[in-house]
Computed example of a mutant assay.
Amino acid sequence: MTQARIWDDRVCGLGEGALWHPGRGQLFWFDILAGTLHSRDGDTQLSWTFPEPVSAAGWIDRDTLMVAGATGFWRFDIPTGGIARLGDLEADRPDTRSNDGRADPVGGFWIGTMGLGAEPGAGAIYRYFRGEVRRIVTDITIPNAICFSPHGDFAYYADTRAEIIWKQRIDRAGWPSGKREVFADFSGVGLAPDGAVCDADGNVWVAQWGAWRVACHGPDGRFLQALACGAAHTTCPAFGGPDLATMFVTSATQGLNDGALDHQPGGGRTWAAEMPVRGLAEHKVVL
């Protein structure tokens, strides 16, 4: 099992949404409940605060991100820190917030929502595409693991509470097509899938909440290997670096028992490891 190292020492209550911007060669990630976006420019640590919890992003151009928040989508200007609202996301639901999300191969952005208390079935998955926001999955509790196969023919997503990752065929316009199928069922072993990303070979790397690792499953769902982290609650992996062979992993301290951090000083920090595989460049969001 490969072992990750601490890459950024800032502690996130709920680190999530790791995104490697391919045009900037720069990692971005979130501390959701703090409403904070983090990044690094060399050794300089950067942070920006939003007016609501924020959880996931996609890149629009070199200087601009789309950021998903509790009530809507934001256009974020990286050089200035300026924000502008692009559209609503369950803006009439004060009892929900955004969670995991990622851009698909044709420029759409998939984003999950969930109840503030993870109420059963209170969440959904939406797709933002060219200004339209359409709900594509309903009756989900904690949406996670949104990622896409290398050829763009399949999407993956999970319900962490159900401990299942599904595989969904998507059409050439990026919309779900046909019935989903179970890709990996962890309910029998008590593993909770969180954020995920595909590598260039089509393997799915999924962070597992409470398991101290990111697990790799082949395109057929079989477990292949794992990356160990010094944080129990790993939350979201992303491939980055000059050759997309570095895996970055966010983590969280939320939900840890009193005194648990005494035994895991890396909890909530962002991790990195050089990997034997390469990732895929993140897709651009088309507004």
Rank of each mutant, 00 (worst) to 15 (best):
A56L: 02
A173Y: 07
D194A: 13
C147E: 04
A228D: 11
C198T: 15
A232K: 15
L27I: 01
P219M: 09
V67G: 05
C236G: 06
S98Y: 03
A273D: 01
C198D: 09
V214D: 03
R135P: 03
N257A: 15
P105W: 13
G42H: 02
G72R: 15
T64H: 15
G42C: 06
P51T: 05
T44Y: 00
M247S: 09
G42K: 04
A103R: 10
R10P: 01
R24M: 09
N203T: 11
H151W: 02
G72N: 05
T2V: 15
G268R: 09
W175A: 10
G255S: 08
Q45L: 04
G82I: 00
S55M: 04
F248L: 07
Q208Y: 00
C236N: 15
R269A: 06
P120A: 13
Y157V: 07
G25P: 03
G101A: 10
V277S: 06
C147F: 01
A272T: 07
Q3T: 12
G82E: 15
R269V: 03
P219W: 12
P176H: 10
L280V: 15
D262M: 11
R269Q: 13
D61W: 13
L261P: 00
R40E: 06
L280M: 15
D258Q: 08
A124E: 11
G218H: 08
D43Q: 09
D31Y: 11
I136W: 02
G123W: 05
S149L: 08
G81R: 10
I164L: 03
W48V: 07
A228W: 06
T234Q: 05
W7I: 04
G268P: 05
P22G: 09
T141K: 13
D88Q: 12
A56R: 04
D139M: 07
G72L: 14
R40D: 02
D61N: 15
A34G: 11
T44E: 10
P242R: 14
M114N: 09
P176I: 07
Q264L: 05
G259T: 09
V197Y: 02
A18Y: 01
A245T: 14
M114A: 08
V189P: 00
T141P: 11
G131S: 04
L65D: 10
D63V: 01
D43Y: 00
G15M: 12
W7N: 01
E16F: 08
A84F: 02
R40I: 00
P94W: 04
M275Y: 07
D262K: 07
R102L: 10
H38W: 13
S149D: 09
T71M: 00
D77K: 00
G259A: 14
G15S: 12
M247Q: 05
D262A: 15
I165C: 05
V197H: 05
R93Q: 06
M275F: 10
A122R: 14
W209R: 12
A228F: 02
A18P: 14
A232F: 01
R269N: 01
W7K: 00
I125Y: 06
L116A: 04
N257P: 05
F148D: 01
H21G: 11
I146A: 11
V67R: 01
P51A: 09
A184E: 01
S47E: 14
P242C: 00
L224G: 00
S98L: 12
V182T: 13
R40Q: 13
M1G: 12
D77T: 04
E16L: 03
S47F: 05
